[in-house]
């Protein structure tokens, strides 16, 4: 039986409109994101990973094409409905230092509460469970400002869990973390995808961790404004892309090569 993708795009063109016209980031994306998997979005700086994520969750309009969220057009969701489907974790700076972990996670209940945001006992249960899922139960009364970067990242992940949305998009969730927190965060996300059947898409520059812990990779090529073209997004399971040389082609250059045996990028030896 074919699975309905959590997110599907058809001929999606992403980018920005300005007075001078369109600035295309990618002209034609046909993607399928599935539940129960962690998908890592890899690409060079400026390839447009953030643009893609922001477009998929409706924060910025697509230039053209179709986005289906669980089989239904993105444009047909009300903001309230969409917020119960797709949760996001971004890199942007927040000003939430003066509230506690518990209070921040409880903001995730907003799509499910009324005008005043009053929380019922079932909401509190969801919040406690979300905090436990990311392993922060003993820190739930701490101020967000007192947390380490890794703990703050987990708090925001818990917020998306409190949203009870089947799809979670994360923009470089491991960017400012040390190696331990990077792996911990990825393990947490993997557990959420596999145990709670979430569809998780995260952008990252951390190739090592992505290759170890992501089920699927999307390799986003940069758009070349000179030719007006961009290569297609390369999608596949991590194993396939390592085996069929896609990673070598994607990352390989005059100075770099991808070594499938060690799964690392290495500098080409000068000969």
């Amino acid at each position: 039986m074919p699975r309905v993708p959590a997110i599907e795009t058809r001929n999606l063109r992403i980018g920005y409109t300005s007075r001078t016209g369109e600035r295309i980031v990618h002209p034609d994306l046909n993607l399928k994101l599935f539940a129960g998997e962690v998908t890592a979005l890899l690409g060079r700086n400026g390839a447009g990973k953030s643009t893609l994520l922001r477009t998929l969750c409706g924060l910025q309009p697509a230039l053209s094409g179709t986005i289906l969220i669980e089989g239904r057009l993105l444009g047909n969701y009300t903001p309230g409905e969409l917020s119960a489907k797709v949760g996001i974790v971004l890199t942007e700076q927040t000003h939430a230092g003066g509230i506690t972990v518990y209070e921040l996670v409880s903001l995730g209940r907003y799509p499910h509460t009324g005008f005043f945001g009053t929380l019922g006992e079932s909401d509190h249960e969801v919040i406690r469970l979300a905090i436990r899922s990311v392993g922060l139960s003993d820190k739930q009364e701490r101020y967000v400002a007192e947390l380490s970067d890794g703990e703050r990242q987990k708090t925001f992940i818990a917020k998306t869990l409190a949203q009870e949305c089947p799809i979670i998009l994360l923009d470089e969730p491991t960017a400012f973390l040390d190696i331990t927190s990077r792996i911990e965060t990825m393990v947490t996300l993997r557990a959420l995808a596999h145990r709670q059947h979430k569809a998780i898409l995260l952008s990252t520059h951390d190739l090592d961790t992505a290759l170890q812990l992501a089920d699927r990779l999307w390799l986003q090529p940069a758009f070349d404004p000179a030719t007006g073209e961009a290569g297609p997004m390369v999608c596949g399971t991590t194993e396939d892309l390592v085996a069929d040389g896609s990673l070598s082609r994607f990352f390989g250059s005059d100075t770099l090569t991808f070594d499938p045996a060690t799964r690392r990028l290495i500098a080409r030896n000068e000969k």
């Binding site: 924060l59 917020s83 971004l90 942007e92 903001l107 907003y110």
Partner: peptide
């Protein structure tokens, strides 16, 4: 309260 997280997060919270 939602705006404490910035406008993108607030929008994502509906």
């Amino acid at each position: 309260n939602a705006l404490l997280l910035g406008e993108s997060y607030a929008a994502n919270l509906g």
